[in-house]
């Protein structure tokens, strides 16, 4: 078995401490009973209570969740199609297409946000919830596409050919053979798109309109005014939700992975 040297253990420990210490501080202080952020006033759920009485914050949370659900769904469909196109189809303008799929992954958000806003203005598209939904779909479909495409690359092309050879038309082949094999990637693509949409501030701030104040926009405007214990509480809840989702997702994929590994082992014996 492989063992880690002291230096490696130290690197890992320091790296993880760097990642988790600030979050731990934030979480602990969300349970602080004191009004002063920095003074420890004993454990308390006071700020969570305040939070649930803050109608504006709750409304923003509802908007953000709805937005994430809609844009992640659209991005999952479009992104999966884009992945299929890149992995399986030959067509004109493939290079431009690949460029457009990969570019949003690294494009500074400020440019994406500005350009989408100017598009909406040019076409008199009302700024607000649906503008953000379109913007988030555009941004996140690239992430879905890359995840699904890398999974598709591991799916033996001859499986799809075998299905067609056995009389299965293309659409049904996709649904009965390809999709079951790539679903973990599609699911994690959806989760990532959901998280990115929930997270986005810059793009949303460009294309938002009245009545579409998302959670990050609201938190941002509060944070600019200084640290507030209530914000610690919001952040803690968000962290808990994301962590739970991720752990469930990784357990799901791990189990199917483990099954495959066991199978491969069985075949070798």
């Amino acid at each position: 078995m492989r063992r880690l040297s002291t230096i490696n253990i130290a690197a890992l420990a320091l790296g993880l401490a760097f990642l988790y210490l600030p979050i731990a501080v934030l979480v602990i202080y969300s349970f602080n009973g004191s009004r002063l952020v920095t003074l420890w006033g004993g454990w308390s759920l006071r700020w969570y209570g305040e939070l649930f009485r803050d109608a504006a914050m709750l409304e923003s949370a509802a908007i953000s969740l709805r937005l994430a659900l809609i844009s992640a769904s659209a991005a999952t469909v479009l992104g999966t199609l884009a992945a299929l196109a890149l992995a399986r189809e030959r067509f004109h303008g493939r290079l431009l297409f690949a460029g457009m799929v990969y570019a949003p992954l690294v494009m500074p958000e400020i440019i994406t946000g500005l350009s989408l806003l100017l598009l909406f203005v040019a076409f008199n598209f009302e700024r607000g919830f649906w503008a953000i939904a379109v913007a988030h779909t555009t941004l996140t479909l690239s992430f879905v596409a890359v995840i699904v495409q890398s999974r598709l690359a591991t799916v033996d092309r001859s499986l799809e050919e075998a299905a067609m050879d056995l009389g299965c038309p293309p659409l049904r082949t996709f649904l009965t053979v390809t999709l079951p094999l790539i679903w973990p990637a599609v699911a994690s693509g959806f989760l990532l798109a959901f998280a990115l949409s929930l997270d986005d501030l810059v793009i949303a701030n460009f294309v938002t309109g009245p009545g579409a104040t998302t959670l990050p926009i609201r938190i941002y405007s509060e944070v600019r005014l200084g640290v507030k214990p209530e914000i610690n509480a919001v952040c803690t809840i968000m962290i808990a939700v994301v962590a739970t989702g991720l752990v469930i997702a990784s357990l799901l994929t791990k189990r199917s992975q483990a099954r495959q590994d066991r199978g491969a082992l069985g075949a070798r014996l």
Partner: peptide, 9 residues
Amino acid sequence: TSFLIRVYA
């Protein structure tokens, strides 16, 4: 987790 949270932390 949200990058806003990370900055805020």
